[in-house]
Design a protein around this nucleic acid. Structure first.
Lengths: 263, 263
DNA sequence: TCTTATTTGTTCGTATGTATT
DNA sequence: GAATACATACGAACAAATAAG
């Protein structure tokens, strides 16, 4: 419990709801390896029978575990224990180590550490800028931007959606519009053409997954995602890239480091 | 929708479940101000009657909105539309501006910007260190640590729980053990006694609220919190403080800034 | 390809318990 | 104490997705 809560009113703990008790049971069973990663939980009717509760209670218990990201449901098949460990993302180091400073490199390194294979898939297009992106990039509403969307997998598991927006004015016709941006990634290519980023800002929000994200990341619509917006600026404070990153919240730990003197 | 999803299999959109449709309806009504912040939604039986659905559907719809942090339930009273805007927390600036570098100062400034009053409440105790904290502080398991727990409110709304752990060996008997740590807060006091922090690491996780957190932050146990662990180190890399911060996830935006050169 | 069984998703109806007003 | 509100539970039924044949 810990100190400092003394003065808070705590009502007598009402007997824990059955579906919570069952969720606790199943959680322990998963953690002790009774249901190993990738295996199926007993079906809801079977849980109901085994623990002498209604199917509704069994269902609600599974809903709790899904919310925690402990299991995932394949409809028509069953409830699967998730296989991946928590992934760590260090935003500062990603940008600092220039020679592998592209997202792919940092991502690969992180997964290699865990014995997993990184796979990613890039799509490039040119589109009119959405309002918020246009605003940040300081271009006129509707002006064209280069869009790089990258989907990333850890092994066979989809884990990240990243959408990068660059002003077409500076990116069109450069290696930034190519699938492979070469060593150092897009930040090195931006530097090549005189727009090397000098500072970064990330803002982090937690929200429910949108339908499409939920399907692609294989999570419930009720599941939360981390929505990170990274903004890269030149030394003159010109914004040269906006990057929207979406991660399944249960699957990631975000790490930020800085030193005291820094402003 | 956006580019890059083309190759993903998207099943025909099954008709949206009634409880989701109702949740969409209520969400719009809240956003357009039909149910202003602080007001009560119609009761579940009334929603059921008005929209010709079962009470179960009305209940599930409210569950969705609760998960999003849009409403909060006062049991026995009704469902309340939340009052607070999203709060922004800039971790780097908090530590950088030394003269108001204590959490209280930064927190107050942020709330003042929104026209809200900050209130906080500190409890100090000395306890044996939990295993993970002892490990980080590099002290023996069970050694005593100074614990500063701060509960913070924005106006009347509880918004943050922060628990700071300091080695008793360096903190006991110093101003660090006082309720008011004076100008600059604990980091200035650490500097005074030769343990000024020089670098910080924050790691961010999203998880369901524990029961006690849920009660105190007035969220559901199913609701997610941001669990931030900040570690402060001296120039010699000695860890001098571990700070566990818990925030209701829907209520906060985390901001981190850094420059490209930095390691 | 079609059929059937299995599994989860959703809805309705009903009932009871607990907290607040 | 009574009325109202949400929380939980049981039972039944049908829909949708998947797997096995």
């Amino acid at each position: 419990v810990g100190p400092g809560f003394e003065e808070v009113h705590v009502p007598i703990e009402t007997p824990r709801a059955k579906y919570r008790q069952l969720a606790d049971l199943l959680r322990s069973a998963i953690e002790t390896g009774e249901y190993p990663p990738g295996s199926l939980l007993p079906s809801e009717p079977e849980l109901a029978q085994r623990y002498e509760v209604s199917r509704d209670v069994a269902h609600q218990a599974v809903v709790v575990l899904r919310g925690e990201g402990l299991v995932r449901v394949d409809r028509g098949r069953g409830t699967v224990v998730r296989e991946l460990p928590v992934l760590r993302r260090n935003a500062v180091i990603r940008q600092a180590t220039r020679d592998q400073g592209n997202a792919r490199g940092a991502f690969q390194a992180e997964l290699a550490r865990l014995g997993l294979e990184a796979r990613s898939d890039v799509t490039i297009s040119e589109l009119p800028a959405p309002a918020d992106v246009a605003n940040l990039l300081d271009i006129s509403l509707g002006a064209t931007v280069l869009v790089r969307r990258r989907l990333m997998w850890a092994g066979e598991v989809p884990v990240q959606i990243a959408t990068s927006w660059l002003p077409a004015e500076i990116a069109a016709g450069t290696p930034l519009a190519e699938l492979d941006t070469g060593p150092g990634g897009i930040y090195s290519r931006l530097a090549d053409i005189g727009y090397g980023p000098s500072s970064f800002t990330e803002s982090v929000r937690v929200r429910p997954a949108e339908d499409q994200e939920a399907r692609w990341l294989r999570v419930d619509p009720e599941q939360r995602v981390l929505a990170i917006q990274r903004i890269a600026r030149t030394a003159e404070s010109r914004c040269v890239e906006v990057n929207d990153i979406v991660l399944a919240a249960h699957q990631w730990e975000l790490v930020y480091e800085w030193s005291a003197g820094q402003q």
